[in-house]
Simulated assay, not measured.
Amino acid sequence: MKKAPRARRAAAKTATATGPRAGGEAFQKGLQALAQYIAREGALPGRAVVERLPDGTEHRTGIWIGNQKARRDRLDATQLAALAELGVDWARRVGSGPVVLLPPERSGHRASPTHALSARAGPRP
């Protein structure tokens, strides 16, 4: 028996200037949902947050902000500035190297042996 010839695949769509790098619709919708959430709650959303937009659609804002952080090296300057304006700290620090968080200084507080800087300080007396 002879096999039927395979159907050809449709040509791939070409990218347009209105894609995600140009601040496309999806990014703007996420930004709108994030701004709405921050205005109401005063903080960034957790991963499970789903925000209802004025047009009645739901946006998975918590997942969206996590995805933006994971892809922050591919966001353009305008997108990063928009996120930074809403108070997203990591959007301000792109390209500045790793961020090291230190505990707040307290009188009489000594760094624990597992503290990241304790290896530089030398052995404890």
Results as ranks from 00 to 15, higher is better:
M1R: 09
K3I: 10
A4P: 05
A4S: 13
A4C: 07
A4G: 04
P5K: 15
R6E: 10
A7C: 08
A7V: 13
R8V: 07
R8N: 07
R8A: 11
R8E: 09
R9A: 15
A11N: 05
A11Q: 08
A12T: 07
A12I: 06
K13I: 05
T14G: 09
T14S: 13
T14N: 11
A17S: 14
A17E: 13
T18N: 14
T18H: 07
G19H: 15
G19I: 02
P20C: 06
P20D: 11
A22P: 01
G23M: 05
E25M: 11
E25P: 06
F27Q: 02
Q28A: 15
Q28K: 15
Q28H: 02
Q32K: 15
Q32E: 14
Q32I: 00
A33D: 01
R40Q: 10
R40V: 12
E41T: 06
E41H: 12
E41N: 06
G42E: 00
G42N: 03
G42D: 04
A43T: 09
A43Q: 13
P45M: 02
G46M: 06
R47A: 11
A48V: 02
V50H: 00
R52W: 03
R52E: 13
R52S: 07
R52F: 03
P54G: 02
D55G: 02
T57M: 09
E58N: 15
R60E: 11
R60I: 03
T61G: 03
G62M: 08
I63C: 03
W64I: 00
I65P: 02
N67M: 08
N67V: 06
Q68K: 15
Q68W: 09
K69W: 12
A70P: 01
R71V: 02
R71C: 01
R71Q: 12
R71K: 13
R71S: 11
R72L: 05
R72F: 00
R72Y: 02
R74V: 03
L75K: 02
A77H: 06
A77Q: 11
T78C: 01
T78D: 14
Q79P: 00
Q79K: 00
L80D: 00
L80W: 00
L80N: 00
A81Q: 13
E85P: 01
E85G: 11
L86R: 06
G87M: 13
V88K: 09
D89V: 12
D89N: 10
D89H: 10
D89K: 14
W90Y: 13
R92E: 09
R93T: 12
G95R: 00
S96C: 07
P98Q: 13
V99K: 13
V99I: 13
V100Q: 10
L101T: 15
L102G: 01
E105H: 09
R106E: 11
R106L: 15
S107V: 14
G108E: 05
H109T: 07
R110L: 15
A111W: 10
S112Q: 12
S112E: 14
S112Y: 05
S112T: 15
P113M: 06
P113K: 11
T114N: 08
T114D: 08
L117T: 04
L117D: 06
A119R: 14
R120F: 13
R120M: 10
R120D: 08
A121F: 13
A121Y: 11
A121M: 15
A121C: 09
G122E: 01
G122C: 05
P123L: 07
R124A: 11
